[in-house]
Design a protein around this nucleic acid. Structure first.
Lengths: 258, 258
DNA sequence: CCGATGCTACGGCCGTCGCCGTAGCGTTCC
DNA sequence: GGAACGCTACGGCGACGGCCGTAGCATCGG
């Protein structure tokens, strides 16, 4: 029997480590904190406490644990402590879990309004996701601007031209080992969008030029009219069906970098 | 202040769902079970109990929970119940966590011997990972046999020829939506290997032809001499540094499909 | 048909951990 | 310098959940 072949070593290779990490993410309060940090911004302990729905003391404890597990980083600034995800790997792992979370109960979709906006366009750590992210991905793909590369995509000559037209240097971080552009599975659409240095730089540029602005109180973002025009002109075939326009009052006043 | 912008909606979008999934994976016993199932095979409750280091009754409870969370599937066969991962998404999510688990404690590397073999060559759900998987990925990449495609890679004409030479039909599941070939981040090497239908078919073929055989008692696999010869001849540039050869006694006698 | 086997259901024990109270340290503002 | 603020440290309370005992239901073998 194949049974007995398995019954001889007490295994436990990396299982326990895996459990530690998952356990850290497995508490509702901590999960909410991590989820909130997935937009790549840094938040204070108090904000995170409120988001998690617990008292600051409790949040402090959770944050300490997350720090110990190397899931988050802290940047001390005066009497404030800004917490952010430790890196893109953390965001990737969380996205992986979200795919499951959306799959599992099948019918447990996101709550109406906010959910719809999140599916439409949002940030995923440092790049765009949702239908906006997918629209960009698909347009580049369909136009033949992407080539296979070490662990992801590379830009073809025409792709580089597009990034230059948008004011970005496609070769800026070419020396880095990790792929500048790679696919990232979208938990809401179950289709890939673009992650990596270049995708982050693109998102950054879009905020800078106000082609995309942050929605208040969530990771959702809004493609502005100007943004739609610019992307449509620069990126042939770009499609991103707009919902009803969002009043400027709902936009985040300050990008709030940290 | 950006603070107050965040302090107005009681959030909790998909956070709780995320926490549920992570909590499921966050128990050592369950994590060990999932880890063991990551080779894509189906194991019985008893085997999983032993692997997790708990009594069968306890394991039964854990398995019920994992079932409810849609992380695993069961195939009833007589008085045996074979459990397996619910799908590739689960394996992907677990790999994402393993990347973190290997990162976080930095120095907490895998235990010597078994760890070394796992890093060398292993299965990741249904395809090859470790340096073997990376070797295949890199050879195809370097030879220009991969092109960017919807959510991953597609084979170029030369790539298809290679797969045909190995006895596979590269267009078999072309109608499927998901990419036939996509990069999957390797937790031990932190570099991509190939996942997807075609990668799974390749692995299957390799076992069938005894180019690769399963190591007893672990997810590690062994590239046979014949396999090395075949892959080397068919896949120009294929490199996979061998450790000392493994005695046939340590090989798994039966593929043990379910 | 009877016993052995594989697995699940239920119940009680106990540890772990999330929670917030109070208390204390450092920073900022007036 | 004093008060307000942001955050962390510690301690006790309470509950969730993992553990295995016994018990019960199916299947397979003789």
């Amino acid at each position: 029997m194949a049974h007995h072949a398995i019954m001889s070593t007490p295994n436990l290779y990396s299982g326990p480590y895996l459990a530690e990490i998952a356990h850290l993410m497995g508490d509702p309060a901590r999960a909410n904190m991590l989820h909130a940090l997935m937009d790549g911004r840094a938040l204070t302990a108090k904000e995170l406490a409120w988001i998690a729905g617990v008292a600051p003391q409790t949040a402090s404890g959770h944050l300490a644990k997350l720090m110990q597990g190397k899931l988050i980083d802290v940047a001390v600034q005066g009497r404030h402590r800004y917490y952010r995800l430790a890196g893109p790997e953390v965001a990737t792992a969380l996205e992986g879990l979200m795919v499951l979370a959306n799959l599992d109960g099948t019918s447990r979709r996101l709550p109406s309004r906010v959910g719809a906006e999140l599916s439409q366009a949002r940030t995923c750590y440092d790049h765009f996701a949702g239908r906006l992210g997918i629209g960009i991905h698909d347009a580049l793909m369909a136009g033949g601007h992407l080539a296979a590369s070490e662990g992801g995509y590379a830009l073809t000559a025409s792709g580089k031209a597009i990034f230059r037209a948008l004011g970005l240097d496609p070769d800026a971080s070419a020396r880095s080992r990790r792929a500048a552009l790679r696919p990232c599975l979208d938990w809401s659409e179950r289709r890939p969008h673009l992650a990596g240095h270049l995708a982050a730089a693109l998102a950054c540029r879009c905020f800078e030029m106000d082609w995309v602005s942050r929605r208040k109180d969530s990771r959702a973002v809004i493609l502005t009219e100007e943004g739609r025009a610019v992307l449509g002109a620069t990126l042939p075939g770009f499609r991103c069906d707009a919902p009803e326009p969002v009043s400027p009052a709902l936009r985040e006043p300050v990008p709030a970098l940290a």
